[in-house]
Every structure is written in structure tokens, then in C-alpha cells.
Amino acid sequence: MRRAISLYGLTFSLPLLVWQLLFFVFPLAFLVALSFWTVKNFTMRPDFDPVNWVTMFGKPVFWQAYGTTVALAASASALASVLAFPCSYAITFKLSDSARRWAIFLMVIPFFTSYLVRVYSWQIFLSDAGIVNVILGWFGLGPYSMLNTPGATMVGYMTLSLPLVILLQLFSLVFIDRTLIEAAHNMRCGRLRTVFEVVIPSARVGLVIAALFCFILTFGDFVSPVYLGGGDPTTLSILITDTTKSGQQWPRAAVIALTMIGTLLAVAFLAVRFAYAGQAKGARK
């Protein structure tokens, strides 16, 4: 039933549209404009000058941060996918229905705890006199300095992303047709081979989307690199906060932010293409 636009319909559909246009699309569009503004005597003025783009792209520190951020986020996505898979696999295939429901409920809890508090908590574990070093000391090992290393950043990234990756993987695994697995077993396909040739290809879309979300989350996170990684090496997110908070260089921060959005869009596009490429076999090329 198709109807003309009615007052009734607009009452429900318009408010969100207006809000997101005003406060989501406009700010992002304004960011584009802002990146062409100039700063003179500590005040910003509207302009159309590519100077910020030229300055930022000409800075070695920017490209170093860019490389670091991409490398960290990519490793985090790979690591989170590998670490999460056995867990989501086991929850899907080795737990009873009610145990699975509990497992899912428990995995949702971290989303409603403060990420900052969890990062501070990791400082307690990883500091020089922290819990991990004390335990290692009982075995005559250490102490190792673990805080302010890329490894600590990675621990923070896993804290941030692992619950989401596990849940997303879980939801793709649950919907696998189990008769496929049984068929593979009946044809004497080995356990691991079944996982790699039946389970993973069937859940491919979900697994790639999970990795993509991990990339998005860690790519923009500034808390772990600062408070666990010690701020060194610098990531793009640290560069944004420093550039924004330390004065009127917002146009330059806008350049960094837009570069990040561009990168994320490209990564998301490639990931989605890769995820669905296997689905239409032969259709590719």
C-alpha cells in the first residue's frame, strides 16, 4: 500500500532525519570546509587554502603516525580474529543452548563498563610492580617492564575489541547449516579440515565484518596508545587530540580526521568486497 506523504508518516520519520542531518552530516561536512581554513594570530578564519593539507602531508611525523596506526589496527584485527575464533567456535558448537545464552549475556557486559576504568585496571596488572610481575617473581622471572610498550597497547586494543569480535563471529557461526558439517564428517573430513574448509568459508562474511569492526575501533582509539602504550609511537588519534587540545590548529586536526575517514572507508570497502567475493563463486572476474 503506497500512500502520499502524510503528516502522520512525517511525524515519525522526520525528527531523526533532521537531527542526523543537523548534527551528524553537517559537522562532518563542516570538517571538510574547516580543513581549508587558515589560522593567523591564533584565530581561525574561513578561507579556501590547501595549506593545511600541504603542511600535514609534508610532515614526516604525520606519515610515521599513519603507518603506525594502520599497522597497529591491522595487527589488532588479525590478533583479535585469531584469538576470538576458537572461543566463538567453542561457544557455538560445544555449549548447550542455555550455556550459550549465558555466554552471550556475559560478553555483552563489557560494553557497559567504562573502557577507561578497564585500561586503568590493566595498568595495575602490567606496571613494574604490578600483578603480572609479582606472579612472575614467584617463579623467579622478571620483572619485565611491560607498560608503555606496543604490547601493552595491544592488550588495551584486545580489551576494547575482543567482546565485539567474539559476539559478531558467534552470530555468523550460529547460522551455519549444521548438516554441512555433518556431511563433511560423514565423508571422513578431518576435524581441522572441516573447520578450515567448511566452517570458516560458511561464516566468512561475519568473520570479515568482525575483523573490520575491530579495525575501526582500534584505528580511532586514543586511550590504549596513550595510557598503556605511553604515547610512543604516536598514532593518528593521539595526533588529533594533541593538535585539537593544544591551541587553535583545528584545521590541521580536520586534515588528520578526514584522512582517517578516507582510510576507514577504503578499508571498509575492500573488506566488504573481500567478504562477499567468495559468495558468488565464479562471478568474480
Binding site: Q20, F23, V25, P27, L28, F30, L31, I216, I240, A257
Partner: peptide, 25 residues
């Protein structure tokens, strides 16, 4: 497009949203 506007905002990194919001507001 409507659904994208309705669902996409949480996927934009908060730090970018923060900067865009600060500049715009």
C-alpha cells in the same frame, strides 16, 4: 540513505565525531 543516516553514526570513530562536533558546535 535514510537507514544509513539512522544506523551509521556509531561506526565513525568517536575521536573524529568529537572533533567534528566541537568545531561545528
Amino acid at each position: 540513505v535514510y537507514l544509513a543516516l539512522a544506523l551509521l553514526p556509531p561506526t565513525i570513530p568517536v575521536i573524529i565525531m568529537g572533533l567534528a562536533m566541537l568545531a561545528f558546535l
